[in-house]
Amino acid sequence: MKALMSVGAVVGVIASLVLLGMIFGVIPASTVHLVEGYMPMQMLFELSIFVAGFTGLSYMLNSMGMTISRFWQGIGFVAFILFYLKSRIYPPIPFSVRAMYGTVTMVAVFMWMSSNEEDWKKFRQPILNVMDGLTPLHKGLRTFFLIAIPLGLWGFAYQSFVPQGAGADVDEPIELRTVHPAPPASTKVHGKTFVLQTSQNPYRANPEGKYDQEYSNKLIVEQSMGRLMQENANPWDPKAEGYLKNVREGGEIFFQNCHFCHGDNLNGRGLHAFAFNPIPANFTDPGTIAQLQETFIFWRVSKGGLGLPREGFPWASVMPPWEQHLTTDEIWKVVLFEYWHTGYYPRTWD
């Protein structure tokens, strides 16, 4: 038991040191980096390590006669979790979610502290001491809280109601934009009606230049959430035919029209990108075109920000309706290029 706990303690100390070191820049922040794709489990795993570590630590301290009181254990744990969520997870978690996590953590600590009668007594003893004002120190603290708490509440209420002054950082209202709203059943481009569920990109062609879905299906190498397509030959090869030729033509159109906003790498960080809020869609993100059908992209490209349906409100998109500038064939080719370049395979109607 003791050996187990010692190991726990060592782990706890090391983990805490590494965490603190990484956050304050003593050791490189990537010492223990979050592994792409495994982060959710990693986060839970790390938290488990910390819990195990703290248990060991508190056991060791206890056996050395340096007990941390239940009260401070609880407070410390809540503080740790808040700190962990705020500093460890990158990109930063939105406040709303942190608030939820924080509340649940507090409830959890309460459940832990009050799980048996003794612990609960120990936990509230310091609070009761202050309330009873037994010693001069406690009395002082009590007086301090009596003044500080209402003052703090007043300040909080004032802060949340007073309009932020000029020059101050005015909070923009929260908006819930549906980024990929449900598309219409069909869309009419250049006088031709495309039924989104059945239309196909006519440029998924085999080397002979004939439409061939099978050919592009064969290129899929990864069937899971983000389907990936096989690397294949260079479309800029002047001899490239069929599918690759169409990709090249799509690429030319992309770099003449789209890359100013969507960027050279299709990552939504083009020349003009940061003039917009939100910035243009990042096609390399597995949450964008990789999740959508090819016809959805076709619809969005041809109709632009103006063509968004009601769920897309507020229509925070300045994408022009490209049907006014490109032919349907050109739009299909651009779509083809976008998928080729990012390596994703469009979602199919399954």
Binding site: E36, P92, P94, S96, D171, E172, I174, I279
Partner: peptide, 17 residues
Amino acid sequence: VMTPAELKAMGGQQHPV
């Protein structure tokens, strides 16, 4: 639920973790 500033900091609607 997030403010536009947080949205920007996160770089997308989806949080990787």
